[in-house]
Simulated scan of single mutants.
Amino acid sequence: MALIGTLVDTFNDNIIGPDWGNSYGGALETGGRARLPCVAGQYSGYQTAKAWTLAGSSAYVQLPVAAASNSATVEAQTAFNIIQATAGTYLAININTVAGTIRFENNVAYTDGSATSLTYNSTTHAWLRIRETGGTLFWDTSTDGSSWTNRRSISTPAWVTSSVNAVAVELQSYRNNGTTNFAEFDNFNTATSSAAVHFLSASLTSDGTLTAGLTPSAVLGASLEAGSSLDAAVTQAAVLSATLSADTRLSAQTDAAARDDLTTHVGRPQSGWTVSQPWI
């Protein structure tokens, strides 16, 4: 059973995905949204196949842009519908900017005389939801896609329970006359555009230098007695560097002159000398 709550689309790839294969009337995906032209006398819509189940599930969507009235005299319509096999029998949240209303509808033969109608506010009604639980059907709105306000509730119509894998989601726009504009939907069954990429800046500082201090260790003596135990602490050895100087050699050198090249001269004694043999 394909619960309608499992259908999720952010519309961020600007391509109409295969889940919306029944789209019509010039529907396109652009700027990260599903865009529907609102043309006089023409319906346009994003639409899935009738392959989903609403019972016990919910569907919600963001509405950033409802089609403005632009000179329409009866209706400029933006609608969120849950449809099934019987034409004209469907659930809707319908905004008409000509009348300035938002209606919460359980249509049979395209009408609901008991619909709840409020004054439309683009901020208050920025998100739209239709859900079913425990035999009750609810229409809700939200400003942010997180906190919801219930606008209408009824006993679940029989067709909602019996239509297993047989309902479709339809996002629709239409005007009776006036100037063409468009409606835009976003974030189907997701409160955020999860595909968005954000670039952040950071200021980085260089790593600091970590200086390791030496921890001295002392080896102490201990006097042990028999039966006592001594736990050995881990001693960390540090390998230190040292600057070494080369050994210096001292060579001794004599100052004595060689004597083997001396010539002896013998001459007559001079006055003032003391003369001994053989000169006497």
Results as ranks from 00 to 15, higher is better:
Met1Ile: 09
Leu3Asp: 14
Leu7Phe: 05
Leu7Lys: 01
Val8Met: 05
Val8Cys: 00
Thr10Phe: 01
Asn14Arg: 05
Ile15Thr: 15
Gly17Val: 09
Pro18Phe: 07
Trp20Leu: 02
Ser23Ile: 09
Tyr24Ser: 13
Gly26Trp: 04
Ala27Cys: 02
Leu28Gly: 05
Thr30Ser: 14
Gly31Ala: 12
Gly32Arg: 05
Ala34Asp: 01
Pro37Glu: 00
Val39Ile: 15
Gly41Arg: 11
Gly41Trp: 09
Gln42Asn: 09
Tyr43Ala: 14
Tyr43Thr: 06
Ser44Thr: 11
Tyr46Pro: 02
Gln47Glu: 10
Gln47Ala: 08
Gln47Asp: 04
Lys50Gln: 12
Trp52Glu: 03
Thr53Pro: 08
Ala59Val: 14
Ala59Thr: 06
Leu63Ile: 13
Pro64Val: 06
Ala66Leu: 03
Ala67Phe: 08
Ala67Pro: 03
Asn70Val: 02
Ser71Met: 09
Ala72Ile: 01
Thr73Pro: 07
Val74Pro: 02
Ala79Glu: 10
Ala79Pro: 12
Ile82Phe: 03
Ile83Ser: 04
Thr86Gly: 04
Tyr90Glu: 03
Leu91Thr: 00
Ile93Asn: 08
Gly100Trp: 06
Ile102Val: 12
Val108Met: 08
Asp112Ala: 07
Thr116Gln: 13
Leu118Pro: 05
Thr123Lys: 09
Ala126Val: 05
Trp127Asn: 07
Arg131Ile: 01
Glu132Ser: 14
Glu132Trp: 03
Thr133Gly: 14
Gly135Ala: 02
Phe138Val: 12
Trp139Phe: 15
Thr143Phe: 11
Ser146Phe: 07
Trp148Asn: 01
Thr149Trp: 07
Asn150Pro: 04
Arg151Gly: 09
Ser155Cys: 05
Pro157Met: 03
Thr161Gln: 12
Ser163Val: 00
Asn165Leu: 07
Asn165Pro: 00
Ala166Lys: 05
Ala166Asp: 11
Ala168Met: 01
Ala168Val: 00
Val169Met: 00
Val169Arg: 00
Leu171Asn: 05
Gln172Cys: 07
Gln172His: 13
Tyr174Ile: 05
Asn176Trp: 02
Asn176Tyr: 04
Asn176Lys: 01
Phe182Ser: 14
Glu184Leu: 07
Glu184Pro: 06
Phe185Asn: 04
Asp186Leu: 01
Phe188Thr: 06
Asn189Leu: 00
Asn189Trp: 01
Ala191Cys: 04
Thr192Gln: 15
Ser194Asp: 13
Ala196Glu: 14
His198Asp: 11
Ser203Met: 12
Leu204Phe: 09
Leu204Arg: 13
Thr205Glu: 10
Ser206Glu: 15
Thr209Asn: 14
Val219Met: 11
Gly221Glu: 10
Gly221Pro: 11
Gly227Asp: 05
Gly227Trp: 09
Leu230Tyr: 08
Ala233Asp: 13
Ser241Tyr: 03
Ser241Met: 02
Ser241Ile: 02
Ser245Glu: 09
Ser245Lys: 05
Ser245Tyr: 03
Arg249Gly: 07
Arg249Lys: 12
Thr254Arg: 11
Thr254Pro: 13
Asp255Leu: 14
Asp255Cys: 06
Ala256Phe: 06
Ala256Asn: 12
Ala257Glu: 10
Arg259Glu: 09
Thr263Gln: 14
Val266His: 11
Pro269Cys: 12
Ser271Phe: 13
Ser271Met: 03
Gly272Ser: 08
Trp273Arg: 14
Trp279Tyr: 11
